[in-house]
Simulated scan of single mutants.
Amino acid sequence: MKQLVLSIIAYAVQRDVDAAQLCKLAGIDLAALKKSHTAPVTAQQLQDLWLNAARLTNDPLFGLHFGESLQPAALGVVGEIIRSSATVGEALTHAAALTHLVTDQCRMEVTRSAKNFTVRLLPAVDYGAAPPYAFRQLIDLLLMMVIHELDGLLLEKIVPQAARLAYTVPDPAEYERVFRCKPSKRVGDYVLVFDSRYWDEPLLTANYELQNLLLQKVSSLPQTAGQQKTLQNRIYNYLLANSYLGVSSLNDMAANFNLSPRSLQRKLKEEGVKYQDIADAVRHSLAVYYISSGNYPLKDISWMLGYNELSAFTRAFKRWTGSSPVQYNQSL
Rank of each mutant, 00 (worst) to 15 (best):
K2N: 07
K2T: 13
L4R: 10
L6Q: 15
I8P: 06
I9L: 12
D18L: 05
L22K: 10
A31F: 01
T38Y: 02
A39G: 01
P40L: 01
Q44S: 08
Q44L: 12
Q45T: 06
L46H: 02
D48W: 12
W50F: 15
L51Q: 14
L51Y: 04
S69N: 08
A73C: 14
I81S: 03
T87P: 06
E90T: 07
A95M: 03
L98D: 11
H100F: 08
R107F: 06
K115G: 04
N116I: 00
L121E: 02
P132K: 05
R136V: 08
Q137H: 15
G152M: 04
G152C: 04
Q161V: 13
A162I: 09
Y175P: 03
P183N: 14
S184L: 09
R186H: 12
A206M: 06
L210C: 11
L214K: 06
K217M: 09
L221P: 04
Q227S: 07
R234M: 04
N237G: 14
Y238F: 15
L239G: 02
A241Q: 05
N242M: 01
L245W: 01
V247S: 03
S248M: 10
L250E: 01
R262F: 06
S263E: 10
Q265R: 15
K269H: 08
E271R: 14
A287P: 08
Y289S: 10
S292A: 15
G294F: 12
P297K: 10
L305N: 01
G306S: 04
N308G: 15
S324K: 05
P325T: 09
V326W: 02
Q330K: 15
